[in-house]
Design a protein around this nucleic acid. Sequence first.
DNA 1: AATCATTTACGAAATATGTCGTAAATTAGT
DNA 2: ACTAATTTACGACATATTTCGTAAATGATT
Lengths: 126, 126
Amino acid sequence: MSTRTIKPTESELEILQVLWDRNLASVRDVHEELSKTKESGYTTTLKLMQIMHEKGLVKRDDSSKTHIYQASVSKEKTQKHLLGKMINNLFGGSPTTLVLQALGNHKASPAELEEIQQLLNNLKNQ
Amino acid sequence: MSTRTIKPTESELEILQVLWDRNLASVRDVHEELSKTKESGYTTTLKLMQIMHEKGLVKRDDSSKTHIYQASVSKEKTQKHLLGKMINNLFGGSPTTLVLQALGNHKASPAELEEIQQLLNNLKNQ
DNA sequence: AATCATTTACGAAATATGTCGTAAATTAGT
DNA sequence: ACTAATTTACGACATATTTCGTAAATGATT
């Protein structure tokens, strides 16, 4: 299916988060966002984003001095891909085990529980 | 709390899977299991397991020639840790989003759906 | 136009990961 | 006891990841 298997690294994922949020962003935009929770130099972020561009993880418009970046992999697709990997690598291929762990260990609001219930009902009636 | 934050690599996770399954295993045991799905040399597996020992990911009994290894991190703890990381890094801190993705994209049997329903009921009545 | 600030490009280094070859030690078979 | 097989130890290398410094290019200020 054409698409190379994409496996962003930890740092690349942080950058993708910002790009998914903003859609368009310069290196400076991304770097300032990351700086809120992380200590690292501007050129580090720049280099990472250049490498991501080489890999095809991001697109960019370099028609003006300040290049504008955009994610070229969708959030949903990436989530799906990495989730599948985790299910295989860590949960013996059982999504159910993962779901039980996630629900058991992390609080969810009544509204969220209801949302899950909805989906569950759909899956049952099939 | 002592325990350093442990983040096994891809290969280390494969090895841990085997150790979690068997509890006790030699390098050869592990390597033969991995060989079923993966192509790599015996000394590679050995080296990885030695490094895992240095890192404290595994314990070993080296009283006889063939060293016997055992995981020193529990499956549940590791799952919990990496799942939490993924929720933060990739699902904006929302376990619900992850659960919905997991249920939506991966098939679950009626029995499994029932199991999830049980847990859901418990969480609701709280 | 000259200067200053911002941005990109590039190279280089530190660490981690995964790979294996070879040698030494240990055990088993004869 | 000798030989063969197995296992560990160790060093080395290739690649990937993360980090930054410095220089060049670009654009803005005066």
